[in-house]
Nucleic acid binder design. Structure first.
Lengths: 214, 214
DNA sequence: ACCTGAACACCGTTCAAGT
DNA sequence: ACCTGAACACCGTTCAAGT
């Protein structure tokens, strides 16, 4: 497309908006990733977008609504990464659990948003719909689906939050040293064992699911 | 004690401070319970205590440190409620899990603090020390102790956060209605089933623990 | 030792105004 | 329709000063 054609196009539709909901949302996530949730503000986001902070309010009614949109995008990603298609429900749940925890590692600053916010946006529902469809095709009743889904998702949220909170816990090492048994057991709770700890609890839950499906 | 005696006492020690770490901490919790975490500020806390906001900084280095102290108090309470003395470790863990979830219901506004903050204060350690001592007396090795402790505590954090986030989720009912399977499974995820869902997942984890102990 | 008060560098959001 | 700019009512924290 020539420069003239572009010119003609853009001059026809009076002028395209420089902001979009998507651009704001993804810039918000980038800022949160870079500087943390506490440091994130609509004013800084405005600066990053090259506009006044108030311009954002034309696209989102509040900062809270914008954060919901960020969560929605991240949750949709979990759904895409772990497409529950060919496998059985136990394995689909395992993949999703891993992808969900992976999200916590990829976006440590944004993850607390997901874990504390209500799990009820468009993108989240779309993803759950496919997951629950698969359960039905496997002949798993709704109650069992609900129970294991809740157990696994709660477990993953908790584990991930725990892992994130453990960053910089070395500072507490001296106070912990005064508690003999805590020190002893804590050896197994260190970051080096995070993968093992996660898979262990997940295995316990999914083994029970596998037994109850058969 | 007569008024004169009181007068003599207080005049001897030049003047007792009107603030203490404990008074500030418990007033902070009261404010968070009443108005929520977002609305909580050092300035409002100052007003509630009858002093300038800045007076708090003589007792705590920052708002963050004060919130850590609030978490510490709440965690110590869980330890006291569920005194792991006479029972075996499986049942001790079950009681603690219930007490921990109970905390979320008693202090819904403060609970996210506990779940997202590092689990490493004086009061928390004192409580864990007793819990891990009990595990040792039962002959449970440190690795198994660590694995199940982590699994159960992560599960409880996640479940509790989930339950709190579900408050006011009725607003999302219309969007959920467009997803057939989500609607169907969600019937079992409603507040009426929260107790059942919690006990179900907890049971799965603790049954596995009971098996591995024997 | 314990607390005040002014000040600094921020917030989210409303609202009238610009283009 | 889309964005600006001033304004309002807040924040956490520093620091000098008071008692």
């Amino acid at each position: 497309m020539t420069a003239a054609a572009v010119e003609k196009r853009t001059s026809k539709r009076k002028k395209p908006p420089s902001l979009t909901r998507e651009r704001i949302r993804s810039e918000a996530l980038k800022l949160i990733d870079a500087e943390g949730l506490e440091a994130f503000s609509t004013r800084k986001l405005g600066a990053a977008l090259g506009c006044e902070a108030m311009a954002i309010y034309w696209y989102y009614p509040s900062k809270e609504a914008l954060l919901d949109a960020v969560v929605d995008e991240l949750m949709s990603r979990v759904g895409r990464v772990a497409a529950p298609e060919a496998t059985d429900w136990v394995e689909a749940l395992r993949e999703i659990a891993r992808a969900y925890r992976g999200l916590a590692h990829k976006h440590p600053n944004a993850f607390p948003l997901i874990a504390t916010r209500r799990f009820a946006t468009e993108g989240t529902f779309a993803f759950l719909e496919r997951l629950f469809e698969l359960a039905q095709r496997q002949g798993i009743d709704d109650r069992t689906t609900a129970r294991f889904f809740r157990a696994v998702s709660a477990y993953c949220s908790g584990i991930a939050l725990n892992e994130l909170a453990a960053r910089g816990e070395e500072a507490d090492r001296e106070v912990r040293a005064r508690f003999k048994r805590v020190s002893s057991v804590s050896r197994w709770l260190e970051p080096a064992h995070f993968d093992d700890l996660f898979e262990f609890g997940l295995g316990v839950l999914l083994d029970a699911l596998a037994r109850s499906v058969r």
